[in-house]
Design a protein around this nucleic acid. Structure first.
Lengths: 153, 153
DNA sequence: CCGCCTATGTATAAATG
DNA sequence: TCATTTATACATAGGCG
């Protein structure tokens, strides 16, 4: 969102990183609040700012109660990395159509841990979105009905 | 967002509430992921669906580690006393230990996750190559306009 | 349940004050 | 710095299969 499309990678400029954190943290907390009300659920959100300060949110229950509910789950329900993996796979499957050449210039696919793969997938996602736009420009539908709304994700 | 402006109050229809949860949960996790990368921070997000099932996300660090960082804060930094703090700390230590031992004793679990992700990315790269051919055909590139950086600015 | 579509509302990157 | 504005990207409600 915003004037330009932002690549999902670390913002190197310290000021910009802090500014972006403040804005997005508020957005994230608002979303978490809305979800907790709309769907009437327990939620806990913990963040440490770039400077190390804590931000957190929880809905109807105290955050420590939600954490306790989490740690009290049977191990197989909690599932460790499994759920993150499923989210990543879901995201990957959604990105099924088009691509961009620049990704080919970056053949680093031998990452050996999930976190690096996660970042890798994030970059692929950005590249795919750009590529989808390009291909839609280059391959307009036969009836010329391509509009701005078609270009949005 | 969407066709109609939604009041922030509990969705009474069970089906709609579950559908909205699924959609917004994915959006929230995506935002949390982006924030963790862009701002290079620790983040932990725990949700229980309307039916009581767990969803969670954490960025570069395991969720247990982020929770441990949280419960280890001095009380005044956290903004209140956690009543069952000792219990949480004990349980988190147990969790961490179990996870570490499980990873050591059974690396196949993690490795299979990584391999599945790498397979996804491999298929994805094949699509990239096909896409590259399409783009070369459609876009003769007389001005060297094929790099990602050209499109991002 | 799951994914897709599209109109519409929302979040936010940069610019500006 | 920090609030406000603006243009743009993104998320999602409702509908369909």
């Amino acid at each position: 969102m915003g004037r330009v499309k932002l690549q999902i990678k670390r913002i190197e400029n310290n000021t910009n990183r802090q500014v972006t954190f403040s804005k997005r943290r508020n957005g994230l907390i608002k979303k978490a609040y809305e979800l907790s009300i709309l769907c009437d659920i327990d939620i806990a959100l913990i963040m440490f700012s770039p400077s190390g300060r804590l931000s957190h949110f929880s809905g109807r229950r105290r955050i420590e109660d939600v954490l306790a509910r989490y740690v009290n789950l049977p191990d197989n329900d909690r599932g460790g990395v499994i759920q993150n993996r499923e989210f990543l796979i879901r995201t990957l499957k959604k990105l099924k159509c088009e691509n961009d050449m620049a990704a080919l210039a970056n053949p680093t696919v031998v990452n050996s841990n999930v976190e690096e793969l996660q970042q890798e997938i994030g970059r692929y996602q950005q590249q795919l979105q750009l590529s989808e736009q390009r291909l839609r420009f280059l391959e307009p539908d036969p009836l010329g009905f391509t509009s701005m709304s078609d270009l949005e994700s």
